[in-house]
Design a protein around this nucleic acid. Sequence first.
DNA 1: CCTATAACCGTATGTCCATACGATTATTAC
DNA 2: GTAATAATCGTATGGACATACGGTTATAGG
Lengths: 191, 191
Amino acid sequence: MCGLIAERGLDAVTVARTASRAGISVGLVQHYFPSKDDMLLHAFERVSGAVAARVADITSEGTRHERSIAEIVLAALAEHLPLDEARRAEFRVTRVFAGRALENPALAEVDARTAAGLHAEIARAVGNGVECGEVEPGVDADTAAARVAAVLEGLATQVYRGAPGAADRAWEVLRAEVAAVFTGECSQYVR
Amino acid sequence: MCGLIAERGLDAVTVARTASRAGISVGLVQHYFPSKDDMLLHAFERVSGAVAARVADITSEGTRHERSIAEIVLAALAEHLPLDEARRAEFRVTRVFAGRALENPALAEVDARTAAGLHAEIARAVGNGVECGEVEPGVDADTAAARVAAVLEGLATQVYRGAPGAADRAWEVLRAEVAAVFTGECSQYVR
DNA sequence: CCTATAACCGTATGTCCATACGATTATTAC
DNA sequence: GTAATAATCGTATGGACATACGGTTATAGG
């Protein structure tokens, strides 16, 4: 059903169409979801979880290869940018839901939780960076995380809108943003 | 009708309700707008224009009082943050429309134009800053504008979501962001 | 083997809504 | 003053959709 959202938007998502797209009947959808709202909520949770899972993968993979925190963070953040068609579709879905979240408390809750999760992960990375020497001591992890998360979100929409040169510029800005926080070399492992 | 959107979301906006809210008949709405989509488009253009107008006011007011570009820019940017109930409502409206823009090319066009306008204004301010000495020469206005616009958008959603301390932190981050670009003193007027 | 539970289907219903349409009143132009 | 245009109304209609519901097949559990 996320395909449906990505292609035609949430307005085009009807229970009947969703069922048809999944190759099942309307009745079966009802069997699994008491209401359409539940169905939508489930989809939002699923797609948000998918992004988070991919980021976790990148993080653990990077850790295993002993890359610097800065490199790992940059890769994880870039995963949120709609740089290829797959991520464009994913972005469309999450963004459409985020828009709906303004009118739907249940969706808003998922949105807030997802955002809080991203913030916490960035803050943790910065904190680790302080301990291992990649980040200057005295840097406040929460402030830095808020800033990075903010710039990431803004860049994502800029890339999506696709003004000429936006993608390259966004990548450069993101790199600079990370570099501005992780200014040192890693001297000890404390991850 | 923006009140309707702010209170109950776009899904609750029907032609009948909009008419009723405005104290007129359905027929009259149809007289002015050929279709509901046209009505929505008009509303989006109106609210986007309103924000832009307020920013223009702040800018010209600041210029008249000969404030530094940095101060003016900071005030103009803050206007986009949902710090009071009026701006929260406005934010809800623009955000809801931005979400719909992903499924509606006409709305997307307005969204893109608005974003491009903001970017251009920031870039112009930075360019002026370079000429008058508030910004270090060599700073690329477009890159700086992209960064500032991105962080602004991200901060706005953080403030809106209203995590504890988000508003204060956002203000601080925004101030730092502007200060990072406008590092010098104004030595000559070239606005 | 049988029974309860789950998976699954198709249709019926009632609601809501955008739009169409015809009619009526005000406003302006000549 | 009258013709034309704009402003305004109320209702009718047809479509789309969420949900309710009753039924059927499969899948274990005892």
